[in-house]
Measured scan of single mutants.
Amino acid sequence: MDVFMKGLSKAKEGVVAAAEKTKQGVAEAAGKTKEGVLYVGSKTKEGVVHGVATVAEKTKEQVTNVGGAVVTGVTAVAQKTVEGAGSIAAATGFVKKDQLGKNEEGAPQEGILEDMPVDPDNEAYEMPSEEGYQDYEPEA
């Protein structure tokens, strides 16, 4: 019985440690998101679009440190934060509304985080759909 109880105690310690790591990862992701939003706020009209992409990228980098179902929630929060940063930029006159959601080359930025393969159960990952990809044929 002692062996059984000791095993359960060790398992509990492992769960607590994993929860603490997840909590730490979420806190880091939130900190990076805040950094990115402050970065966007300090940019001029020309830099705002690039700044919004930076927020998304920093958040995406930190999301990889967070495991399990938390990833889905962090990704949703990050996307809403990026959308909010863009709205703030438009409201303050840093950028025109028609410039939001495009990178410096004018290509749409939507789907940055949505296409990231995420499995809350950590069982399997699927690649994003290939609808947006084109076949590449090298020139002879």
Rank of each mutant, 00 (worst) to 15 (best):
G41D: 00
Q99N: 13
S87Q: 07
V82I: 03
L100F: 04
D98L: 09
V77Q: 10
A29F: 11
V55G: 02
V37P: 00
V55R: 01
P128Y: 03
Q99P: 03
A11G: 05
Q79A: 11
E110D: 03
Y136A: 14
V40N: 00
T59M: 09
E123I: 14
K45W: 15
Q109C: 12
V63H: 01
E57Q: 07
K32I: 15
M1W: 00
G14M: 04
I112G: 12
D115G: 03
L113H: 07
V37A: 04
E46I: 14
D119P: 14
E28F: 05
Q109D: 12
E139T: 02
M5P: 00
G7Y: 13
L8S: 00
P138V: 14
M5I: 00
V16L: 11
V118L: 10
T64R: 10
F94H: 09
S42I: 07
V3Q: 04
A124T: 02
K43W: 08
V82L: 11
A91D: 06
T64G: 06
L100K: 03
V70I: 15
T33C: 02
T59P: 01
D98A: 04
G93Q: 02
G73C: 13
G132R: 06
L38M: 13
V16D: 01
K96S: 09
T33V: 06
P108K: 12
V3F: 06
A17N: 07
E83L: 04
L113V: 15
G73P: 04
A124W: 08
S129Y: 08
F94W: 15
T64V: 11
G68Y: 11
Y39W: 13
A11K: 00
A91L: 10
V77G: 08
Q99M: 14
L8P: 01
K34G: 02
T44Y: 05
T75D: 07
G7R: 03
E130M: 14
G7K: 12
T81D: 04
G101V: 09
V77H: 02
S129D: 13
N65M: 09
A85T: 09
E131Q: 11
V37K: 00
G7P: 02
Y39M: 09
E110F: 14
E105L: 04
V71C: 08
V49M: 11
S129G: 11
M127C: 11
A11C: 06
S129E: 13
P138F: 10
D119S: 10
E130N: 07
G31C: 03
K43Q: 09
T64D: 11
V40F: 04
G14N: 07
V37Q: 00
G31Q: 12
A30S: 14
V15Q: 00
V48P: 00
K21I: 12
N103P: 04
A78L: 13
T22S: 09
P120C: 13
T33M: 13
D98G: 12
G41W: 06
A29R: 01
K34V: 10
T54E: 05
E46L: 03
E114L: 13
P120K: 04
A140R: 12
L113A: 09
Q99A: 09
V118N: 13
A140N: 12
D98V: 06
F94Q: 08
E20C: 09
G106K: 07
E28M: 08
T59H: 02
P117C: 10
Q62D: 02
A78P: 02
A91C: 12
V66G: 03
Q79C: 12
V3H: 05
F94C: 00
E126A: 07
V118Y: 13
K6G: 02
V15Y: 06
K12R: 15
G132F: 07
V16Q: 11
K10C: 06
Q109A: 01
G31W: 12
I88R: 08
T72V: 06
E28C: 05
V70M: 15
D119V: 05
D121S: 14
K58A: 03
G132I: 13
N103Y: 06
Y125I: 15
A27C: 12
V52A: 11
Q109R: 03
A91M: 02
E28Q: 01
K80P: 04
T44C: 15
K6W: 09
K12C: 15
T59D: 01
I112A: 06
E130S: 03
G93S: 14
E83G: 03
G93H: 12
P138A: 11
V71H: 03
K97Y: 01
V15T: 01
G106L: 14
V118M: 03
D2T: 15
A30C: 08
D115S: 07
K102D: 15
P108G: 02
A78V: 10
S129L: 04
K21A: 14
A90P: 01
K21V: 14
E104V: 00
E83I: 02
V118H: 05
Q109S: 12
E46F: 12
K58P: 00
M116L: 09
D98E: 12
K80C: 06
E13W: 12
A107T: 12
G31P: 01
N122L: 01
V40Q: 01
E104F: 14
Q134S: 10
Y125H: 06
G51M: 10
N122E: 10
L8Q: 00
T72K: 10
E28G: 11
V16I: 11
A53I: 13
G7M: 13
A29S: 06
Q99H: 15
L38A: 11
E139P: 08
A91P: 07
K34W: 13
E139H: 12
E20H: 08
M116D: 01
Y39V: 07
I112E: 10
Y133D: 02
V3C: 04
E105A: 13
Y136C: 05
S87V: 04
V49W: 11
A30E: 00
P138R: 05
A107F: 01
V16A: 10
E61V: 07
E61S: 04
T59S: 06
N122A: 06
G86K: 03
G31H: 01
V70G: 01
Q134G: 06
N65L: 05
A19N: 00
E104D: 13
S42A: 10
A29P: 00
K60L: 14
V3E: 01
V70H: 03
G51F: 05
N103I: 13
A90V: 15
K32T: 09
A91V: 10
A53Q: 02
M116V: 01
I88M: 10
E105I: 01
E13H: 03
I112S: 02
E131Y: 05
K102I: 06
E114F: 04
E35W: 15
G86A: 13
Q79D: 12
V70W: 13
K45S: 09
A11I: 02
E20A: 05
A30W: 01
F4V: 07
V118F: 08
I88W: 09
